[in-house]
Amino acid sequence: MKDYICLATFTYPYEYFVLRLKFEDAGIRHYFQNETLIGLIPLSSVAFGGIRLMVHPSYISKAKEIIDSLNDKSSHLRIV
């Protein structure tokens, strides 16, 4: 897990729900660091640096493509 790279940071779990589903469908190896802790204590997100999307290095380009497609202004599945 130490080789994984942080691609994005989120404040609350609802912000990346669609992204998680897209990554699972694409078979991208990833995890969300601090997810459980912030889920239990939501107002602590800033104190712990948010929820970090950690992606395996071999899936970085595919993960970036998915993130970019969801950040497109015309996408109805935009991430917050």
Score class of each variant (00 low, 15 high):
38 I>A: 01
45 S>C: 08
64 K>P: 03
78 R>G: 07
40 L>S: 11
35 E>Y: 12
68 D>E: 15
30 H>C: 05
45 S>D: 07
3 D>A: 10
18 V>A: 12
30 H>M: 01
26 A>C: 07
74 S>T: 14
53 L>I: 01
59 Y>H: 15
78 R>W: 06
11 T>G: 10
79 I>W: 00
25 D>E: 15
32 F>E: 10
62 K>N: 04
18 V>N: 12
58 S>W: 12
71 N>Q: 14
77 L>H: 11
20 R>C: 10
73 K>P: 04
7 L>A: 06
78 R>H: 13
3 D>P: 02
59 Y>D: 15
62 K>C: 07
58 S>P: 02
19 L>P: 01
69 S>G: 06
49 G>E: 09
74 S>C: 05
7 L>D: 05
23 F>I: 07
58 S>V: 09
3 D>K: 13
23 F>Y: 12
77 L>T: 10
38 I>F: 00
79 I>Y: 00
54 M>C: 11
1 M>Q: 12
17 F>C: 06
17 F>Y: 13
20 R>E: 15
62 K>A: 14
22 K>N: 11
16 Y>K: 01
8 A>T: 01
19 L>F: 02
49 G>K: 05
73 K>Y: 09
13 P>I: 00
49 G>C: 07
22 K>Q: 14
22 K>T: 04
33 Q>H: 04
60 I>E: 13
54 M>A: 06
26 A>W: 01
64 K>Q: 15
40 L>Y: 13
19 L>S: 01
38 I>D: 02
1 M>I: 05
27 G>V: 11
48 F>K: 12
39 G>V: 06
5 I>H: 03
59 Y>W: 11
29 R>H: 11
63 A>P: 02
13 P>E: 02
68 D>K: 15
